[in-house]
Each structure stands twice: as C-alpha cells, then as structure tokens.
C-alpha cells in the first residue's frame, strides 16, 4: 500500500510540477517499489518523460508474447525506456520523427536504435508474426503527429547503450501552423541513466 501511494506521488509530481513550474523544468523521481527512475520535462506545451524499464520487465513482457529469452536478450539489455510524449497546449499540431532525435554521450551525438533494426534481427532469429506485431506496436512510434489538447503516445524506446550509462536525450519536433522561425520545438532531458 505504501508502495502504491509512493507511485501516486511520484507521477503526481512528475506531471503536475511540469505544468506548474513551466518550461524546461526537468523532474526526476524514483519509483519506491520497482526502483525505476523517471526523467520528465515540459516545453512549449509539450510534455516528455522517460521511465526506465528494467531488463527483467522486458524479458517477462516479450516471453509472454511468444519470444524466447535468447531472442529478446539483446533488446532487453539495450537501455530501454517507457516514453511518453504529449501535446497538451502547443500552439499547433506537432510532428516528430524519431530519426531526428539524438542521444548525447560523452559529448558525442548518436541516433537512437531504429525499430526496424530490431525487427530485422528478430525476424532472422525466427520470431513468429504475432511476436513481431507485438514488438513493433509496443515501440514508441517512428513518427507521429499530435494535435493540441492531449494527443499522446506511450511506448518503448531503445537507446542502444550499456546498463548504467548516463546520457542526454535531445527530442525535437515541428510545430505546424506557426510563423516561420517558430516552427521548431525541442526538449533536452539531461543526465538520464540506463537501468542496471
């Protein structure tokens, strides 16, 4: 019960603090039950959060979808986050492509691991279509348009780093229907850490 109450508070503060304290205020909370950490921030009416998914949670999820432990192990240990992006009150629809997002590690920028790369590897390992469908649709979208008023997604995002590594995530999007020069939006989550 204490754990549930703790989780309530964690999420309450992640979401509410972003709204109350305005742009680019980064929040960091730790789930008292699972130990999973969340980093969250808001900018220009757009909310972004990354929550660690522990490798064991990923193994259990995909074994339940028909994959073997061997098949899912590379993904489970690739630094995966439950990602939420939400357009609460941007001045227009936002459009993002995950391929535009970058991970900054030790001063160097790198792209995120594309979902197609994982799907190709899983297909080669003989994963059946239902498992591939579940894998693909459980990932954070490759690209998406969110209209203001609360369009959002929640999905898995593989960063492709080692357990315990820290990095900055640079997320970006285009705001539609605004004056030229104001159409680019971005948010940086700093000091995000891969689950051990």
């Amino acid at each position: 019960m204490k754990g549930i109450a703790g989780r309530r508070w964690a999420w309450c503060w992640v979401f509410c603090a972003g709204l109350a304290w305005g742009n680019d205020t980064q929040q960091h909370v730790k789930d008292p039950v699972t130990g999973a950490e969340t980093w969250a921030a808001e900018s220009g009416g757009v909310f972004l959060s990354l929550t660690q998914i522990l490798p064991d949670q990923l193994r259990a999820f995909y074994v339940n979808r028909g994959l073997t432990l061997d098949q899912i192990e590379p993904f489970a240990t690739s630094c995966v986050f439950m990602t939420v992006l939400r357009n609460d009150s941007a001045p227009g629809p936002i459009h993002f492509r995950r391929a535009d997002w970058r991970v900054r590690l030790d001063g160097k920028d790198r792209a995120l691991t594309p979902t197609d790369k994982w799907l190709t590897a899983l297909r080669r390992q003989g994963v059946e279509p239902p498992g591939l469908i579940a894998f693909r649709w459980a990932q954070f979208p490759r690209e998406q348009t969110y209209r203001p008023g609360g369009d959002w997604n929640q999905g898995m995002l593989s960063v492709g780093l080692e357990p315990g590594q820290s990095f900055d995530l640079m997320a970006s999007w285009r705001v539609e229907g605004v004056a030229a020069g104001n159409e680019r939006g971005k948010l940086i989550l700093k000091g995000v850490r891969c689950a051990d």
Partner: peptide, 9 residues
C-alpha cells in the same frame, strides 16, 4: 492520478 499513471486526455 489515483492509479499513479499518466493522465488520460
């Protein structure tokens, strides 16, 4: 919020 999850729109 009561369930400790992101709010539904």
């Amino acid at each position: 919020v009561a369930q400790g999850l992101p709010p539904l729109s």
